[in-house]
Amino acid sequence: MFTKSVLDCCGGYSNLDYSKVARWEHRTRGLTRLFGGPYVACYSLAILILLLNVYRSHSITVAMKGQPKWALMDRPEVFYTGVALIGGGILFVVSSFLALGFTGTFLGDYFGILMEKKVTGFPFNMIENPMYWGSTANYLGLALMKASPVGVVLAGVVAISYRVAITYEGPFTNEIYRQRAQRCKHK
């Protein structure tokens, strides 16, 4: 029970679940039919993802508040390292969103909403999956600022869940674009 709660609050199950939903959508177009179009369906899934992210952030904050600070971490240099991580994390998350747009950020390619070409500018020219790693940096930064060992562990769980999601999402997304390139060649 505890493990499921920790994974739920940190995106472990919700991350994998919405990837499963998006793959199902790609195969069946079930959400597109239900919502009357790919954009409405994509935006609806995006709202669910955003709500799950709010829940995860709230849960992590509550967990950190409920645990004592660790004196070893309760130092100015650790605090400012946390501030720097949050600054970098916000930069990666916001710049990723601006580069990808709403549907590019929220699995639009699974709904058939494809980008013209792969985004290669900042921040994608610095790091792969900058939104995931920026988000992880935000959680780790907050944990350091709060001198919370529980927060560090939970940021680690977030990082692991994102790593697993990347393992599945990356190749699947590449295959979607490969199939489109094949269709375009045959036209």
Rank of each mutant, 00 (worst) to 15 (best):
T103K: 05
F124V: 05
N138M: 15
S95V: 04
F122G: 07
I90V: 15
F79N: 03
P123Q: 09
P130E: 14
L114Q: 07
M131P: 00
N138T: 07
E77T: 00
Y132Q: 12
G104M: 10
I90W: 07
P76Y: 05
T136D: 06
F111V: 09
M131C: 03
G134Q: 06
A71W: 00
G104I: 07
T105N: 08
L114P: 02
T81Q: 05
A84G: 10
G134V: 06
F102R: 10
P123H: 08
T120C: 05
F97W: 11
M126S: 08
P130Y: 12
F79P: 01
S95K: 10
V83Q: 07
P123F: 11
Y139G: 02
G87M: 14
K117T: 12
V83H: 07
N125R: 11
L98P: 00
V94Y: 06
T105G: 02
Y139K: 02
N138Q: 13
G101F: 10
Y110G: 05
M73L: 15
V78D: 01
M126N: 01
L72Y: 09
D109A: 14
L140N: 00
A99M: 10
A137S: 13
N125E: 11
G134E: 07
P76F: 08
G121R: 11
N125M: 10
V119E: 15
F122R: 07
K117Y: 05
E128T: 08
A99N: 03
L114S: 02
T103H: 13
F92R: 00
A99L: 09
P76D: 10
S96G: 14
N125F: 08
T105F: 11
G104R: 06
V93M: 15
L85W: 04
G112Q: 10
V78H: 01
V119P: 06
Y110Q: 08
I127V: 15
